[in-house]
Design a protein around this nucleic acid. Structure first.
Length: 798
RNA sequence: GGGCGGUUAGCUCAGCUGGGAGAGCAACGGCUUUACACGCCGUAGGUCGCAGGUUCGAGCCCUGCACCGCCCACCA
């Protein structure tokens, strides 16, 4: 046995063994209360980041812990087809060859994407394995595999038949680069410097003008009205009259609407329902025409007349020039404001009126709101329930159609007469007229429309499977903050609508790792950390420990420091086992013949209870810290050191092995590999540690106090340098653990002074009438206990 | 614009309902002790972001400010 523990090789060997022996396998027929964790399926288009490792680590700790406790565990792996993300990635690859997705044709694209998946798809699962994640890999699902596809079709038809899905010509977020609609959540707002132009719209009767402020002068061509606030005194006389739109010189009405902000600009707003969301709503309410001058490519379209084909910037300049020449440009000023961009390609979003498929949200949201309000679904940390509710209570209809070729194609067929057939498998003929000339809807569904089904589609729904029966609802989903609306909210309402039950009990919102500069990690910016740069040198156990250690804060900075701590812990355990094995293996048996043995068993048991509480509260950081101190301070520095003089005795080693076994069990969920490796070296092991039973409670309370007072005394004498004045067990422990100075005649004065200072402080507190009167009784009692303890120390010092 | 989290030792972070400022790493000193020098024992290091307030007592509660990070957002 090498004195230096080397995870390389050991870890992969165990990962293979566990998987080959079926120990990761989930079985719906197995006994035990289910514990089901659906690992959020990563995008097929990427590889893992260190942030994914953090998420996977905390899920796996819980799964391994519950597996040892006898729960029927399912840890479900899978991939997400990630519609637009994958579409955009492939687009970037093709662009290098001067091609685009649409050049391939729909069938050609399908072939290309299959090849692409085979090339990149395997990477993620191998990274899961490298971290030691005990997922049931045999059950790996893909959000576009055959069964899942069926589930999505069924879901669409269900919602359509219930009247929740409708097709409408409304304003949407349009990405001119990807040429598809996006949902509100796929739009990122970024501040941009712009110019606010003040343009005069002459009154039709020539008696003056109304000045509006705009950042998009090109859209003036599509203006159909000017609006002011109904209570705005400045414009009271012009409401109901007409103004002349510059450049196109069209007469449009001046209307009043309370959505206009009086304070902004001049208080007058040009209304362009075809190219602005607010204007669109105002336009619909006032029955205004929706003119369009910008096309799906973001350029001016034919309706723009002489400006057709120009960019909006150029067209805007022409309009501004036109106004300036006629004295209708009042002023221009710099203006910084948030502008929507496509989250995938960062192109500026173009609001356009185009027909899309929508999901009506209000009725679906209601039970999903109740689920969280009634705490059937619990968020950790709790504050995220508020975030979820705020969004859900104000949710708007969801645009679910996308004009790309990667995703679940919408199960709607049109016949030449325009009849619509909506069924979950391809129909022979039109449901209304029987025509066999059917054309399927070109659009595909938003990725998240299908992800929403993950907790039950992975279990076989819509079929009635044993898995679905046994493992739905699940137990827990762990995810990052930004996924709350995209995925969590949608899983909850989908599960309630289709199955009638919440998809899980706990939603764990975990930390987001920042890089060492405190910046968000991003692959595209190159600010991320490759998991393999950590896993390769440090090993999975150390990485898991290090990542969990830092989960107490919301946005921790990644640091190798905590990973290093994990590596030391693994090495320490390894060497502790070496000490016992090299002295001689014996059958483990708790034979607590002396105070040290009873103490360490009690310490381990106390930590077990504390660790269970930590895990129940998802407090991984404190849990692993506890294990570190149990191992280093209690097990190695005190216990093993104190029994060294008696290590030749078989009874002593039998207890030591028994204590080590318990320690390994507590550590296994966090550091599975090193603990399993040590476990196999221990005498007469019949089962793998991964499926060994979690330790039962054992109480030795009195013993904790006994050795802790010995420790306290030992620390005092150790600090003073004076040879022990202790007797009995304490003296033995002291002699074994502490090596006093040669002469044993250190100076006690400093120690006496320190203790006296504490006594003075405690006495002062207790003499404070207001403290005794106002403080909590426990606080006063605690103070009295401290005083008694220090008085005892003073006595011990002589 | 609205909201959330953070600011504690050189670094990464704990600090539970207000009652003696902590850990790990780094630094410094000492240890060839029957495992581990990736070890052991010890030392030093902090006006707890700033300014007020409440309280017998504030890192913790309240108000304001500054800075960092994040989420949401149709004021053109």
């Amino acid at each position: 046995m090498d004195p230096l523990y080397k995870p390389q090789g050991v870890e992969q060997r165990w990962q293979q063994t566990w998987e080959e022996e079926g120990l990761y396998g989930a079985d719906p027929d197995a006994p035990g209360e289910p514990f089901v964790v659906m690992h959020p399926p990563p995008n097929i288009s990427g590889s893992l980041t260190i942030g994914h490792c953090l998420q996977l680590s905390l899920e796996d700790v819980l799964v391994r812990y519950q597996r040892m406790r006898g729960r029927n565990t399912l840890f479900q792996p899978g991939y997400d087809h990630a519609g637009i993300s994958t579409w955009a990635s492939i687009g970037r690859t093709l662009a290098q060859e001067g091609k685009s997705q649409r050049d391939l044709g729909r069938d050609g694209f399908d072939a290309y994407v299959q090849e692409w998946l085979e090339r990149y798809g395997g990477k993620i699962m191998s990274q899961f394995r490298l971290l030691g994640a005990s997922l049931d890999y045999r059950r790996t699902r893909f959000t576009m595999d055959e069964g899942y596809y069926r589930a999505v079709m069924r879901w669409f038809v269900h919602l359509y038949e219930r009247g929740f899905i409708y097709r409408a010509n409304r304003i949407v977020n349009w990405c001119p680069h990807d040429k598809t609609a996006l949902s509100d959540l796929e739009v990122e707002h970024e501040d941009e410097d712009d110019t606010l132009s003040y343009v005069r719209y002459p009154l039709a009767d020539g008696s003056g003008h109304v000045t509006i402020a705009t950042v998009r002068p090109a859209t003036i061509l599509a203006d159909v009205a000017v609006a002011v606030h109904p209570e705005d005194e400045r414009y009271r006389d012009v409401v109901g009259t007409e103004v002349v739109v510059p450049f196109v010189e069209r007469l449009v009405p001046v209307i009043a609407d309370k959505r206009v902000e009086q304070e902004f600009g001049t208080g007058a707003l040009k209304i362009t329902p075809g190219h602005d969301p607010t204007d669109f709503e105002i336009g619909r309410d006032h029955g205004l025409e929706e003119l369009t001058v910008i096309g799906p490519d973001g350029l001016m379209n034919d309706a723009a007349g002489e400006l057709a084909g120009l960019t909006q910037e150029e067209a805007g300049r022409r309009v501004i020039d036109w106004a300036a020449e006629r004295g209708q440009l009042e002023k221009r000023e710099n203006y910084r404001h948030a502008v929507g961009h496509c989250e995938r390609c960062h192109t500026r979003i173009e609001p356009l009126v185009v027909p899309q498929w929508w999901l009506a949200m209000e009725e679906l949201a209601a039970p999903a709101i109740a689920a969280v309000k009634e705490e059937r679904v619990r968020f950790t940390p709790e504050r995220f329930a508020r975030v979820y509710l705020d969004w859900m209570e104000n949710v708007r209809d969801w645009c679910i159609s996308r004009q790309i070729w990667w995703g679940h194609r919408i199960p709607v067929w049109y016949c030449p007469d325009g009849h619509v057939t909506v069924v979950d498998t391809e129909p022979e003929s039109c449901a209304e007229c029987g025509s066999t000339e059917l054309r399927q809807e070109e659009d595909v569904l938003d990725t998240w429309f299908s992800s929403a089904l993950y907790p039950f589609a992975t279990l076989g729904w819509p079929d009635e499977t044993p898995e679905l029966e046994r493992w739905y609802p699940g137990s827990l989903v762990a995810t990052a903050r930004e996924i709350i609306f995209l995925w969590i909210a949608r899983m909850i309402f989908s599960g309630l609508e289709l199955i009638g039950e919440d998809p899980y009990v706990d939603v764990l919102i975990h930390s987001t790792l920042l890089n060492s500069e405190g910046k968000r990690m991003s692959r595209t910016l190159g600010t991320g950390i490759d998991p393999e740069d950590v896993l390769e040198p440090y090993g999975a156990d150390a990485t898991r420990y290090g990542l969990l250690k830092v989960t107490s804060s919301q946005d921790p900075r990644f640091s190798f420091g905590t990973i290093e701590e994990g590596r030391k812990l693994a090495n320490k355990l390894w060497n502790a086992s070496r000490l016992l094995l090299m002295t001689g293996a014996v059958e483990p048996e708790a034979l607590p013949s002396s105070v040290e043995e009873r103490w360490i068993l009690a310490r381990i048991d106390a930590t077990r209870a504390e660790l269970e509480a930590d895990l129940a509260a998802f407090d991984f950081a404190h849990g692993v810290e506890r294990l570190y101190h149990l191992t280093f301070d209690d097990f190695c520095d005190w216990y093993l050191e104190s029994i060294k003089p008696r290590l030749e005795e078989e009874d002593v080693r039998a207890t030591a092995f028994a204590a080590l076994e318990r320690l390994l069990k507590l550590l296994h969920p966090v550091m599975p590999h090193v603990t399993e490796e040590i476990w196999t070296n221990l005498p007469s092991r019949e089962t793998r540690l991964i499926v060994a039973p979690w330790p039962e409670s054992q109480t030795w309370e009195g013993e904790l106090a006994a050795i802790e007072s010995a420790q306290t005394a030992a620390r005092i004498y150790r600090r003073s340098g004076v040879r022990t004045k202790l007797e009995g067990d304490s003296a033995r422990i002291f002699e074994a653990v502490v090596r006093p100075t040669e002469d044993g005649q250190g100076d006690l004065e400093a120690e006496r002074a320190r203790v006296q200072k504490e006594i003075d402080r405690a006495e002062r507190m207790l003499a404070n009438e207001k403290f005794v009167a106002n403080a909590a009784p426990e606080a006063v009692d605690a103070e009295r206990e401290k005083l008694a303890q220090y008085l005892a120390e003073r006595d011990a010092l002589g």
